[in-house]
Nucleic acid binder design. Structure first.
Lengths: 245, 245
DNA sequence: GGCTTAAGGTATGACAGGGAACCATTGCTT
DNA sequence: AAGCAATGGTTCCCTGTCATACCTTAAGCC
């Protein structure tokens, strides 16, 4: 029947469901998630990762396997381990040339950019809308805080604060799944963004849009929030499509 | 530090990323996906699943492990295996009482309904919008076909055709990730919907909304498509919240 | 009837990954 | 100076999973 032979089996309408159960040899998945942690800037340079015991519990992998992951990151000069009490695994500042030869470099070529950009826009707009529909007083505070942090951020820290703001919105959406998916797609996005220059002009424009989105959310105007957010995402998307096309 | 002790480690702001790498012991993940296949109605009752060898390749698990999965489904009277040429694993019609004691029953209690409903709405609205923005001629045909199939469906087959229509929209969005995520969330949704009655009145209303969404998409009107779809999802959500609250 | 073919059913050996215990190092507290 | 506590570093064994090959059943074809 189906013509398939080498490589993957023949495609079909069941592909949305019949995707591989595990993306890689299991340790790769863990690597992926720790990389997310770094790319999202959830643990900024200089700070300490959770201890190996904690991390392995969270990720539900053995400490042995986690250590193999950390070994890779050490070899890439992305983290550094110190022993003893108050030791731990510390994040190093990004080196200009991440690595020519390797492992981590080729991943970027495998990213389906169009998929990433579209999915991102859907999640962001959705999250903004949900936030505008039902936001707690506590949520308002967190959101304002995150926005303020981006306003005051220096250029080198901007990407990180921007990520944090969007992540906050996703978390306040009230859907844990949405937040988790956004984290994943945002990590991919940041990786792509690392390849293109950060212009002050774009940054300023971006900041205006951030303010508009947050305002719409605080005004409890879901339609406006979604619309603003879509526009915001569209800007980034156009930028990336331009640089990568 | 954190007060956690038994069970999961202490929560924190990193939880969006630090989720478990594997949802279960690996065989559970496969079970999950085969269950999706059945719940989505991608393989309707009476039909044959792909052969064990094919399925295991798609899911990237060994045949041994896959057979353990199928064993569970056989024990639940959800599928039936026949040997010999033109044999295979066949889907059985849903039994009224799925199973009192077991394994599969308790999963439903673990579902975060609010999460599911919100995430679903975001994905559906997003997919509808993306479709309306860029739909190929081929896509138009598939969409019309799926809509027609729901119009002609009998009551017992309605849920399945409905699922297929929405799944088609998700696939036509141009984001594979979106389609895969929608498949997952829809499988969960169907499981919830199985617990409540299907009223003809709701069904007719639903059909009007389907037509409206498809029309908006074919008119290339993203805003209308999103709005219609949100309304459509809102209906289901209200129904479920009412029955499960 | 006998062969071929495609499917499920079974058995075996290798290995990755997990759990748990233990060692080594460091800095704080006494 | 001694002890304690929290961390990274290491080892051992065991279970789950995989790959492979082979057996069994049943439908079609010669």
């Amino acid at each position: 029947m189906a013509a398939g032979g080498a490589g993957d089996p023949a495609p079909g309408p069941l592909d949305s469901v019949l995707r591989p159960v595990r993306a890689g040899n299991g340790f790769e998945e863990a690597l992926e998630q720790v990389l997310q942690l770094l790319r999202l800037g959830l643990v900024p340079p200089g700070e300490r990762l959770p201890s190996e015991r904690e991390l392995s519990q969270h990720l539900r992998i053995s400490r042995v396997t986690l250590r193999e992951v950390l070994k890779v990151l050490q070899d890439q000069n992305m983290v550094e381990s110190r022993r003893g009490r108050y030791g731990g695994t510390f994040v190093l500042p990004r080196t200009a040339a991440p690595d020519g030869s390797g492992e981590l470099r080729r991943r970027i070529a495998a990213v389906d950019v169009e998929d990433t950009l579209r999915f991102r826009e859907v999640l962001e707009a959705g999250a903004a809308g949900l936030c505008a529909e039902g936001l707690t007083a506590d949520g308002e505070d967190r959101l304002r805080g995150a926005l303020d942090a981006t306003q005051g951020a220096r250029l080198e820290d901007y990407r990180r604060q921007d990520t944090l703001l969007h992540l906050t919105l996703a978390e306040l959406s009230g859907s844990r799944t949405l937040a988790a998916q956004y984290a994943a797609v945002r990590a991919t996005l940041n990786e792509l963004l690392d390849g293109i220059p950060l212009l002050v002009r774009n940054l300023e424009h971006s900041q205006q849009q951030h303010a508009a989105v947050v305002e719409a959310v605080l005004d409890r105007d879901p339609d406006a929030a979604r619309e603003m957010m879509r526009e915001h995402c569209g800007g980034t998307a156009a930028l990336l499509r331009g640089f990568l096309a």
